[in-house]
Amino acid sequence: MEPEPENCPGVGTENAGKSSACAGCPNQRICSDPNTKIVDPGKELVAKSMSEVKQKLLVLSGKGGVGKSTMVTLLSRYMARAYPDLNFGVLDIDICGPSQPRMLGVEGENVHQSGSGWSPVGVDDNLCLMSIGFLLGSTDDAIIWRGPKKNSMIRQFLSEVDWGALDLLILDTPPGTSDEHLSVISYLHDDNSSDTLRAIIVTTPQEVSLLDVRKEINFCKKQKIPILGVVENMSTFRCGHCGTESEIFPAKTGGVGAMCAEMEVPYLGALPLDPQVTKACDNGDDITNMKNVTTDALGDICQKIYRCF
C-alpha cells in the first residue's frame, strides 16, 4: 500500500476517495468503492491475541501532566492488592513519554521474547506491564516518530505481547485526541460488545485543564466509548507544616463537579495533592503500604471503578 497523500480525508470517512486530495492517489478506487469495506488486518490479529483479556480500561485526559500515569499506577497497584485472585495488566501507549516503568518501580527491566511473543514485565504476582520504555537503551533516547510508526508500535503491543489471561487491562494514554487514541480505539473497540472497552478521565480543577478535558469527553462520545467517570486530581494541598488546605489550582468555573454535570458524566471522587504520593511515584514505591487521607480517597475511587465491572 502506498503512503496516504498529505490531506487525505482518512480511510473509511465520508469523503474517502472523493475529496480533491484523492485525485491521483493509488488507493482512490478502493476508498471510493462503497462495496469494499477496508478492514485493517491488524484488527483480527489483535482480537486473536487479546481473546483472553476480559476488560479494558482507558485512562484519558486531554491535558498533560494531570496525573493519568499516576492514576494508572495507583489504580493498578490498589486493584492488584485488593483482588489477589484476579490478574491485571498495564499497557503504556504514551510512546514519546513513557512514565510507567519508573512509577511502577520496574525501570531498567528487560522484555523477553518467547514463543508466544514478548512477555510483559512482572510488577507483582498478578500485575504485569508493557511499555516502550523497556525497549529504549537509555532514558535520554527520544522516540522521534510520526503517527504511522506509533500506530504500528501500538498494534504490536496489542497483538504481539503475550498478555495471557487478564481480568483487566489498564491503558495509560498520552494527552490529546490523536494518533495513539484513534489507533488503540480502532483495534480494541468491539461493535458487538461495547462494554469491554471503557474509559475514565483524569483532570485537575482549573479551567485550562477542564477546557481540554471537555474535548476529550466529546471525543469519547464520538468514538462511542462509555465513560465510567471523572477523577479530580490535585484538588487541594494540605500543608505539612500548619495543616491548612489550600487550592493550588483554583477552580474558577465551578470546578470538576460542575463540568461533570454539564457534560453528563459521573464524578468519581477527588484526590488531594500529596507530596508523599508524588515521591512514592518518582521512586516507584508501592503506594498500598501507605495509609493516609490520599490512600483512603483512592480506595473509594477504586471501589467505584471496580463495581462497574
Binding site: E6, S178, L182, N218, F219, Q223
Partner: peptide, 15 residues
C-alpha cells in the same frame, strides 16, 4: 465551539 475535539492523525496536523 470550545468543547469541539480535534480528532486528527499526523498528516492533517502537519498540514
Amino acid at each position: 465551539s470550545r468543547n469541539d475535539p480535534v480528532i486528527w492523525r499526523g498528516p492533517k496536523k502537519t498540514m
